[in-house]
Design a protein around this nucleic acid. Structure first.
Lengths: 218, 218
DNA sequence: CCCAACACGGCACTCAGTTCCAGATCAGGT
DNA sequence: ACCTGATCTGGAACTGAGTGCCGTGTTGGG
């Protein structure tokens, strides 16, 4: 029974590098679980798919599922953390003399490639997210997590602005606001792109939107 | 037992106007339920408070609770719908010649009064929201609901912009992006204000932030 | 080669949320 | 004053998410 659990996962040898075997298999199981779950979600819908079914389809018990994901939502949203990480990284590697707004726009390119590479998949994922209130909400929350990781980079680019309100309180909300505005542009572009069935190139829509909203201070 | 349920609510006569008695009591029960729940949440924490306890404290059964609120989260977040409504209303009543950004800033005043009137309460609510991931997520989602209700007003103010991307696809993401940016400013200001223990006047922080992020197009 | 660390299944539990039911209540018209 | 249908009520039974625990089997790595 145990042999079936690990054997059914079909994890090939030769993948993974410096990490111990234990960690490697762990990641492989996670990936397998995500794949299987996504298939079920696509076929039956998110709500109609139980964790029991996902676990069974992956050849493991319900208990074990929770050793890999803390919640059902995480199976869908986990990869967003990695996306946020790469976004922060992309932003960090923009030239130092670039203004904050342009740097953000260019960093967003990292996210756009997913939509360009697999528009149908991105669309399907998006529709699934929109279909479930809790899922949609958590998705938004994850994006706010991106927010926080970008703050230091943007704060550095904005310089120590002469903020009248911050002078006496230490408050500086500007970086957060700029990032939030940029993310709002990204979100608006994605929604519009989706509403139009991916007809227009997403990067062009984003370009237009961010040109319109670009803060006058830059 | 039944008499106890309705009698324990302490709803006095003379409140409510054109609505039928049925609807009046319904609203009173909802309000009572919210008050009682908030007290329990403040005392024991959101997660540690069960629906059973809330219902009992309000003199009714668990079943009846669900006739007034679809979920535990709604007890906390329900009032946000009303807030969004008043925000849209405030925006609609701004002078027609005012630019979109300024109109949004002024409309936000409707929301700020809550924080000015009861900073401690707003702070406590905020901290409770931040303490629970699901709650925080749903809160964000509600604010996105505001988003949609503001779109028509802002679209009108922006005018039929010559959007190169919209020419061939009908896409116009600009209003959404502008609203999103403004809401991001509001959020950033609130967070900064909270992080600083309400030391700086919130409206001043918001003024500064929205001046910084104000799109150059206006 | 061994053993501590880990993964596993299974069980029992709490709680949110849904769906039924039968009985009590009440507004409004006769 | 008395129906009557709509509405509200508590209660019971159910599903599914998420948690905690335990005994057992497996294996990576020293």
């Amino acid at each position: 029974m145990m042999a079936e659990a690990s054997g059914g996962l079909g994890l090939g040898p030769g993948l993974g590098l410096g990490l111990g075997l234990r960690e490697r298999t762990r990641r492989a199981v996670r990936a397998e679980l995500m794949t299987v779950a996504m298939e079920l979600f696509a076929r039956k819908g998110y709500d109609a798919t139980t964790i029991e079914e996902i676990a069974a389809a992956a050849g493991m018990s319900r208990s074990s599922f929770f050793r890999y994901f803390a919640s059902k939502e995480d199976v869908v949203l986990d990869h967003l953390d990695a996306l946020g990480e790469s976004l922060a990284e992309a932003l960090a590697q923009r030239p130092a003399d670039e203004d904050a707004w342009t740097a953000l726009r260019r960093a967003f390119d990292v996210l756009l490639v997913c939509h360009v590479r697999d528009p149908q998949g991105a669309l399907a994922l998006r529709q699934m997210l929109d279909g479930n209130p809790a899922l949609r909400a958590r998705n938004l929350e994850k994006q706010c997590g991106w927010h926080d990781r970008l703050i230091p980079h943007i704060a550095a680019r904005l310089g120590s602005a002469p903020d009248p309100a911050s002078a006496d309180t230490g408050i500086n909300a500007r970086p957060e606001a700029v990032i939030g505005a940029a993310l709002a542009c990204l979100e608006a572009a994605k929604r519009a792109w989706m509403a139009a069935d991916c007809r227009a190139p997403l990067d062009k829509v984003l370009d237009d939107v961010m040109r319109t909203v670009r803060p006058g201070a830059f």
